[in-house]
């Protein structure tokens, strides 16, 4: 991994974190559709990256988001879980012939269908964990399910838009 890639990784980390806490934090559509776009950063980390570094990055990013959301540990816990399962899921989804080297698992490189199979279960996992832990102790069921489903759709659509607008084929940001 050369210094250019590392620079891109760190830059992406900061950009996602700042956009999340400055802009998207206040963007809650209808009061229940949240935009946790930062999961896209973890989803789009290079394919060959090992689970442990991915989890460490997820821990850092989750903690950063938590600090601004005043939800200490919540984003961290759910994002680390997502990072943990990411590589398993990637292995299961390996296309015949394997992945190309140094590829970013984005919609541009892998196609719409593959990206949906890849991202949607992980986003669902992340959101379910987040809202479940957030609401332990309250007996709200339908409001929470509503929040989970609305947020999943919102984040999925946003992640597609962001990739089409700001990403290039084969390279990051």
């Amino acid at each position: 991994m050369n210094s250019n890639r590392i620079f891109l990784l760190i830059g992406g980390f900061l950009i996602y974190l700042i956009i999340q806490v400055v802009l998207l934090k206040n963007m809650v559509v209808f009061g229940f559709a949240f935009c946790f776009l930062y999961v896209l950063y973890i989803l789009l980390l290079p394919l060959e990256m090992k689970t442990v570094p991915v989890m460490l990055i997820a821990f850092g990013l989750g903690l950063g988001v938590d600090v601004f959301y005043d939800t200490l540990g919540l984003h961290t816990a759910s994002l680390v879980a997502l990072a943990f399962l990411r590589n398993f899921w990637l292995k299961i989804l390996t296309p015949t012939g394997g992945y190309d080297e140094n590829l970013q698992p984005s919609i541009l490189n892998m196609g719409f269908g593959w990206f949906t199979y890849y991202s949607l279960p992980l986003i669902i996992l992340h959101h379910t964990l987040f809202f479940y832990i957030e609401n332990i102790g309250t007996n709200l069921f339908f409001p929470v399910v509503q929040k989970i489903i609305a947020s999943i759709i919102f984040v999925y659509v946003m992640s597609i838009i962001v990739q089409l607008m700001f990403y290039r084929r084969r390279r990051g940001l």
């Binding site: 989890m55 200490l72 540990g73 879980a81």
Partner: peptide
């Protein structure tokens, strides 16, 4: 590794639950 990081996150959640206390890891 996964267990360690998750445990760290959950301990943060628990420690944050008090009505008063330290606010270092927080928007303040």
């Amino acid at each position: 590794m996964f267990v360690v990081l998750e445990a760290a996150a959950i301990s943060l959640i628990v420690s944050n639950n008090s009505q008063q206390g330290s606010v270092f890891f927080n928007s303040a």
